[in-house]
Amino acid sequence: MMQRASPILEVRNLAKRFGDHGAAGLRNVDFSVSNGETLAVVGASGSGKTTLARLVMRLLPPEAGSIHFRGQDITALRGEGLRRLRPHFQMVFQDPLAAFNPRASVRRVLEDPLRLHGLAAKAEYDTVIGATLERVGLSADLITRLPLELSGGQRQRVAIARAILTKPDLIVLDEPVSALDVSVRAQILNLLLDLQEETGVAYLFISHDLAVVRAFADRMIVMEEGRITETGMTEQVLANPQSNATRILIAAVPRL
């Protein structure tokens, strides 16, 4: 339904090789994400999901192909040009403990984007941070805590706060709930759904868990050995899988 809206992200023929024989990596990856849409990227370990996330975030250089963000080719963008665009596409990692400087308080973690992108005057930092913490369901009192002094769910909320501070158009979510237990998982996904409804942010959602994808994503692509083997609306793909990789993933979901 959102297919025809202007794509926020367009990936064309993306390729990336690792190692000498070129077996690992990505080949001919082609997809787009529309404004306000959630696209899930699913696949088993080693299928290339995280590599894809890193390429989209411009954390790794691709070998071939192109990445367009809001219509602009960012494949070769560097330096100041890339820096100016960075606030508009953000990322949330699987393990928030590894994504934060362990010695930086929540205040410092959240001040960085404000300072780097000049989003607020210094005197307003605490107000902006406090409001953002509350927006992600945390008390503003947590501002002095270190990452280790937070629970897994709280840490992931701080990671989401850091991502939304810059009011991005796209957030890449790399397995954001797979390290969390069931009750916290639902709270975090609901927070992300609420934020999307409010701000129209698009998500590229990397996951190996089809149950979560079922509840969260509009469309999905299935990856196997660095290629896209299937793509479509989430419900249709799950109801009528066309590729073996998808069938294996479906069969792996525990059933009550």
């Binding site: 609901n190 759904l193 089809l210 979560v212 509840a215 799950l238 109801a239 009550l256």
Partner: peptide, 13 residues
């Protein structure tokens, strides 16, 4: 809280 693959999608979990 269990999400089944054949349940219709709801607005929230």
């Amino acid at each position: 809280t269990h999400i089944s693959l054949d349940m219709p999608r709801r607005k929230r979990l």
